[in-house]
């Protein structure tokens, strides 16, 4: 048996390994190398050292501005999405009529792609602002809150489903016992429900943080960074640097590497922090 699996190992692993290498490993290491190069197209690169990294931060304030805007956005969006999703999950596990309908409705926005959502929300927000002689790019705070509303609307449903699964997993016996002992609903929430759904919280926080950091399509469709790049997030800034400016391809690549490290560090830190609070059911 062992022998057979060894013999078949290569056949079964090869396709996936090849796909993984072609679509991920090779581009990743190529990208890493290219971030130290000056190039116009990816096939004719010239090594220049860390110059690109210096230029990414020093040439203009775009990268820092985008970073700051992204952090502000992520902070607000992650809190809003998780709090609302959790409250919805609590409500929809209370056995009220039409629970399934509500769950479906809240989940639906997740099935629409980012670009489409971006344009839909642009229409909605502009439709309101036009009445007052403004548009979504009149002021950067319109774009900011528009983006927060959009991504909340899109991601809440998905997170809600994860929380619902977590809450349903809590054994009824514990809840019964707590009630018999006279615990208030708030006490039950704080001491039983939240600790028990800690694994769900870990997953949801991870998903929302990384998704918010990496947000691209919604940003592009909603405001495209206007006015004057004030609503430009990191991913869009990287894209614009790489494709929008001749001679800045390497700088864009360097920004992308910095971006990758940043997202990885933030996500790992969050995983470590929330994991340590998880309890066994």
């Amino acid at each position: 048996m062992r022998k057979a699996s060894k013999r078949w190992f290569i056949v079964f692993v090869m396709p996936t390994l090849a796909a993984f290498s072609i679509a991920f490993l090779i581009p990743f290491f190529m990208g890493l190398y290219l971030s130290f190069c000056e190039f116009r197209t990816v096939s004719d690169a010239r090594f220049v050292g860390i110059q690109n990294y210096i230029r990414a931060f020093s040439d203009n304030g775009d990268f820092i501005n985008a970073l700051w805007f992204t952090v502000k956005f992520t902070f607000v969006a992650v809190i809003l999405i998780n709090v609302i999703a959790f409250l919805l999950a609590l409500m929809l596990t209370k056995r009220i009529r039409g629970t399934n309908l509500f769950r479906t409705v809240f989940f639906m926005p997740n099935l629409i792609g980012g670009i489409v959502l971006g344009y839909i929300w642009q229409l909605i927000i502009n439709g309101i602002l036009f009445n007052y002689g403004y548009s979504i790019i009149s002021n950067s705070s319109f774009g900011y809150w528009g983006l927060v509303a959009l991504s909340s609307w899109q991601m809440i449903g998905y997170m809600m489903i994860i929380y619902i699964a977590g809450i349903q997993n809590i054994s009824n016996a514990i809840l019964e016992a707590a009630r018999v002992d006279g615990a208030s609903p708030f006490r039950i929430l704080r001491s039983i429900i939240i600790p028990s759904v800690m694994p769900s919280i870990t997953i949801c926080l991870f998903l929302t943080i990384t998704n918010s950091f990496k947000l691209f399509d919604q940003n592009l469709a909603l405001t495209a960074g206007a006015p004057s790049k004030q609503t430009q997030m990191l991913a869009l800034d990287i894209y614009n640097t790489f494709y929008g400016r001749v001679g800045y391809e390497g700088v864009g690549q360097a920004k992308a590497v910095v971006f990758f490290v940043l997202v990885a560090v933030v996500a790992l830190m969050q995983l470590y922090l929330t994991r340590s609070r998880e309890v066994e059911n």
């Binding site: 002689g133 403004y134 548009s135």
Partner: peptide
């Protein structure tokens, strides 16, 4: 158009 909406 009003000035405010030219951006769209």
């Amino acid at each position: 158009s009003e000035k405010g909406i030219l951006g769209s």
